[in-house]
Amino acid sequence: MYGSGIVRGLGVTLKHFVNTYLEDIRWGFRRHVPDEAFPLRQGLETRGIFTVEYPDEKIATPERFRFIPFLVVDNYDHPERPGHDWCTSCGICAKACPPQCIWIVRGTNPETGRPVPEPAEFYIDIDICMNCGFCAEFCPFDAIKMDHDYELASYDRTSAHIFNKQRLSKEFRYWQSIAPTRAAEEAQARGGWEHKDVLKQREKEARAQAKASESGS
């Protein structure tokens, strides 16, 4: 029968429309539904309206979310090495990067001229970066991570879109805040919350101390 298809189609639309208002009544017409309702509206039970009112409410990003990478540095109130790079400029991220958007200048000791394990300069061209996450995946020092901050729109690309070391560096605390589970897992694998090298150094010192005290006794 002609017209039945249209009626049925309108029925589907009506169902969604009614469900939207049923949900609104359920949550008392509050403009932004309370937190406990959010997983329902943005989850599998959603029947009616599905909209996230973006600038006022944002969907939090999952832990594994990846956008532009950032460099982990020690917290700025770290007792021993505040703001120290975790990066040792080993260059693995630059090699693993598919579009080759990472530039690293290896740090050298100004006196001896020999390389030291920290980058002198570190650049990422975010106009080339494809957010694939290989740099973070293959970094042996947990020093480069994928950021969650996607609000990077700008009016000018020439000055703003090559991120230098200063722009890329973020505190370890930030990484803990955006990915608590993974930060904890990685810390467990390293054997502590500090950088691998610091932990190794401490272990060495502890061993030396133990030895000294042993020989002393």
């Binding site: 989850g43 969907i59 939090a60 999952p62 832990e63 594994r64 969650h148 930030y174 805040s177 608590p180």
Partner: peptide, 28 residues
């Protein structure tokens, strides 16, 4: 594969006004 399935489909809030979702993966 690159990572295992997570235990929970969880999102964390780092920005202002983030609305957090948290589901059990297998249940989801």
């Amino acid at each position: 594969v690159a990572y295992d399935l997570p235990e929970r489909i969880q999102s964390t809030a780092a920005l202002v006004n983030d609305r957090v979702r948290d589901f059990d993966t297998m249940h989801y």
